[in-house]
């Protein structure tokens, strides 16, 4: 019975509050503001020279918790994988499937399109755009904006920060440009 529940996806009205609870959880257990993208900075600070001011700080003291948190997220993914049945299909909106089929995507199993996100594809135009440039923009953009969907989109929005509202609207504007203009162009 409990396994039946665990095998099912979480509804948004369950998942949202659970994610929102990360905000008080991290405040209570360690006086930390919920956020993830600063882990990229801390990871850089472990190896990059202190001559760059942005990386000249005590990463263990300031960022150790965030790197542990990020590692935990990865471990949480491993744990969750045990509850994902074989041949898992997300119950996507029919219109989304139609649009993506129009872009040339045919395999809708699992969490990400296997046609795009494969090791063979890393150095093709598609792979370089989706994985390498996409990744670089995530790291550069979140550090430039000083936060991501967690730090701005949830923590900052929950604290009614003007900066976070501007950032979150910009996240969505950038994402829509990619979805409506860049993805159809790259896949076709």
């Amino acid at each position: 019975m409990i396994f039946d529940i665990l095998n099912k996806p979480l509804a948004w009205y369950i998942a949202g509050p659970l994610i929102g609870l990360m905000v008080p959880l991290l405040y209570v257990i360690g006086n930390k503001a919920f956020g993830i993208s600063s882990s990229f900075r801390h990871a850089c600070a472990t190896v990059l020279p202190k001559s760059i001011p942005y990386f000249n700080y005590d990463w263990k003291e300031k960022g150790g918790w965030n790197l542990k948190f990020a590692l935990g997220i990865l471990l949480g993914g491993i744990l969750a994988q045990f509850t994902i049945p074989d041949n898992y299909h997300i119950d996507l909106a029919t219109s989304t499937i139609q649009t993506l089929k129009g872009y040339g995507i045919t395999d809708f199993s699992g969490f990400v399109p296997k046609e795009l996100f494969t090791w063979n594809n890393v150095l093709t135009l598609q792979g370089i755009s989706f994985m390498i440039i996409g990744g670089i923009m995530i790291g550069f953009g979140t550090r430039y904006a000083s936060g991501c969907t967690a730090g701005h989109g949830i923590t900052g929005m929950a604290n009614l920060q003007k900066a976070s509202l501007i950032a979150t609207v910009s996240f969505f504007a950038g994402g829509m440009i990619t979805t409506y203009f860049i993805i159809p162009f790259i896949i076709n």
Partner: peptide, 19 residues
């Protein structure tokens, strides 16, 4: 927040993943 946010948004929809 606008410039960084737009750049992150572009990457977010490419990879389909935030941090």
């Amino acid at each position: 927040y606008v410039a960084g946010g737009l750049i992150f948004g572009l990457g977010w929809a490419c990879t389909g993943a935030c941090p």
